[in-house]
């Protein structure tokens, strides 16, 4: 029995192909990004080793910190909107009719590619023919906003399709977690005379606090990595007003061919993601005493 289930040859055969793939395409590149950040390189010729120059420039680069701030701002918005998703999930999970259909309808945008969502919302935001401004004009707004072309508005405008896309995702997860709560606990509380709000606040939310914590991490770290939709919709513009870390890195590397500096940005993105994950875990762990 033992020998069959611990046959080293079979284990290697089963594990090594996949392991080789993730080492080669995920872990080694992560290390190389850090190294390329130490070079001056246009992606074609020989990379020239220049020491810490790129990283020193990165720390002093206003654009980088601005893009990091934009990413973080999206993360903060996403975290705040978790409250709304949680309330909706509490309603849907309280045995209401049609909950199953509703949560599936909410999920539909999540299934579309970010490119399709971006192109669709480019049309919705279109200043003269888009759905939003047509609606506003129908209600008598004479000078509706330019949305994506307005550098003061663009980040807030971008957040609308982001909520539209991810709402269903978070609702599905909160709903699943809420459905896992043993029925007996809720029944016992009801018999003790607790009203639905008390049950939600005192019993259900504390019981799914682990899932909520994971979702906060996902919302913030996911926002730090955010790229596709913004890159397609605004390309980081107008005038860098919606630049995020990943779009800054992408433009630097694949449009301007600054592979060295682009790598430094990419490494900065990785470090910030890891620090934030650690930080949120630290901040939220103290509350998990139950």
């Amino acid at each position: 029995m033992k020998s069959v289930m611990s046959n080293k040859l079979v284990i290697s055969l089963y594990v090594l192909p996949a392991l080789a793939l993730i080492l080669l395409l995920i872990y080694i590149p992560i290390v190389l990004t850090g190294y390329y950040g130490l070079t001056d390189w246009n992606g074609i010729g020989q990379a020239k080793f220049i020491g810490l120059e790129n990283y020193i420039n990165l720390v002093k680069d206003k654009m980088f910190w601005e893009s990091a701030w934009h990413s973080l701002l999206l993360g903060i918005f996403s975290t705040i909107s978790l409250i709304g998703y949680l309330i909706l999930s509490l309603i849907l999970a309280s045995k209401i009719k049609g909950a199953n259909i509703l949560r599936k309808i909410y999920l539909v945008p999540m299934l579309l590619s970010s490119v399709a969502i971006a192109q669709l919302w480019a049309k919705i935001f279109d200043p003269s023919n888009g759905m939003i401004n047509r609606l506003l004009m129908m209600f008598g707004v004479d000078n509706p906003p330019l949305w994506l072309a307005d550098s003061k508005l663009v980040l807030y405008a971008l957040f609308i399709p982001i909520v539209w896309q991810y709402a269903g995702f978070y609702i599905i997860i909160f709903y699943a977690a809420l459905k896992n709560i043993p029925e007996e606990l809720i029944e016992a509380a009801k018999i003790d005379g607790a009203n639905p709000f008390q049950i939600a606040y005192r019993i259900k939310i504390p019981l799914i606090s682990g899932v909520i914590k994971v979702m906060v991490i996902l919302a913030i770290v996911g926002s730090l990595k955010y790229f596709d939709l913004i890159f397609v919709l605004t390309g980081g513009g107008p005038n860098h007003a919606s630049e995020v870390m990943a779009s800054y890195m992408y433009t630097e590397a694949f449009t301007k061919y600054n592979f060295g500096y682009g790598s430094a940005i990419g490494f900065g993105l990785l470090v910030i993601c890891l620090i934030m994950t650690w930080l949120i875990q630290k901040l939220l762990s103290s509350k998990e005493d139950f």
Binding site: L25, I26, I30, K225, F227, A253, G266, F267, L270
Partner: peptide
């Protein structure tokens, strides 16, 4: 090994893009 696979989920794809491209 399982941990190594799971942790891959946390790594931002964009940080691997330049080395992948040159690879």
């Amino acid at each position: 090994v399982l941990g190594l696979f799971m942790a891959g989920y946390m790594i931002p794809l964009h940080s691997t893009l330049i080395p992948l491209f040159s690879f």
